[in-house]
Amino acid sequence: MRIGIGGLKWRPADFWDATLTEFFDGIEGHNEAQGVDEQNTDAPSDRELEALVAKYG
């Protein structure tokens, strides 16, 4: 519900009326519009992880 109402900005009635396919398509479309690359699912390398830890703790 948080994703549908908060992330996708759907009204509660729209969330409850949506099928699972519509819900997941909505998430995918939202992520695409935000520039999220769903194809790149590789875990960060050790060097990238160390840099993230150094930057964010």
Rank of each mutant, 00 (worst) to 15 (best):
M1R: 09
R2W: 08
R2T: 11
R2N: 10
R2G: 11
I3N: 03
I3W: 01
I3H: 02
G4I: 00
G4K: 01
G4H: 01
G4E: 04
I5H: 02
I5T: 03
I5D: 01
G6C: 07
G6S: 12
G6T: 09
G6R: 14
G7S: 08
G7P: 00
L8G: 04
L8V: 09
L8N: 04
K9H: 14
W10K: 05
R11I: 03
R11W: 06
R11M: 08
A13D: 10
A13M: 05
A13C: 05
A13H: 06
D14L: 07
D14E: 15
D14Y: 02
F15M: 00
F15I: 02
F15C: 02
F15N: 01
F15E: 00
W16M: 02
W16D: 01
D17Q: 03
D17P: 00
D17F: 01
A18W: 00
A18C: 07
A18E: 00
A18N: 03
T19R: 05
T19S: 14
T19I: 08
L20N: 11
L20G: 10
T21W: 09
E22N: 07
F23D: 00
F23M: 08
F23W: 04
F24T: 14
D25M: 13
D25G: 09
G26K: 03
G26M: 05
G26T: 06
I27Q: 04
I27C: 06
I27W: 03
I27Y: 02
E28V: 13
E28G: 07
G29T: 13
G29E: 14
G29D: 15
G29F: 07
H30A: 13
H30I: 05
N31T: 11
N31Q: 15
E32M: 13
E32T: 15
E32R: 15
E32S: 13
A33R: 14
A33I: 09
Q34Y: 13
Q34S: 15
G35Y: 10
G35S: 13
G35M: 10
V36Q: 07
V36G: 04
V36N: 08
V36I: 15
D37I: 08
D37S: 10
Q39C: 10
Q39V: 10
Q39A: 15
N40C: 12
T41D: 12
T41N: 10
T41E: 09
T41A: 13
T41R: 12
D42K: 14
D42P: 00
D42S: 14
D42Y: 11
A43P: 03
A43T: 10
A43Q: 11
P44M: 04
S45Q: 03
S45L: 03
D46T: 07
D46K: 05
R47I: 01
R47S: 02
R47L: 03
E48Q: 15
L49Q: 08
L49A: 11
L49P: 01
E50Y: 03
E50I: 04
E50N: 08
E50K: 09
E50Q: 11
L52S: 14
L52I: 15
V53L: 04
V53C: 00
V53F: 02
V53Q: 04
A54M: 09
A54Y: 04
A54W: 06
K55T: 12
K55E: 15
K55Y: 07
K55S: 09
K55C: 09
Y56G: 11
Y56N: 14
Y56H: 15
G57I: 05
G57Y: 05
G57S: 12
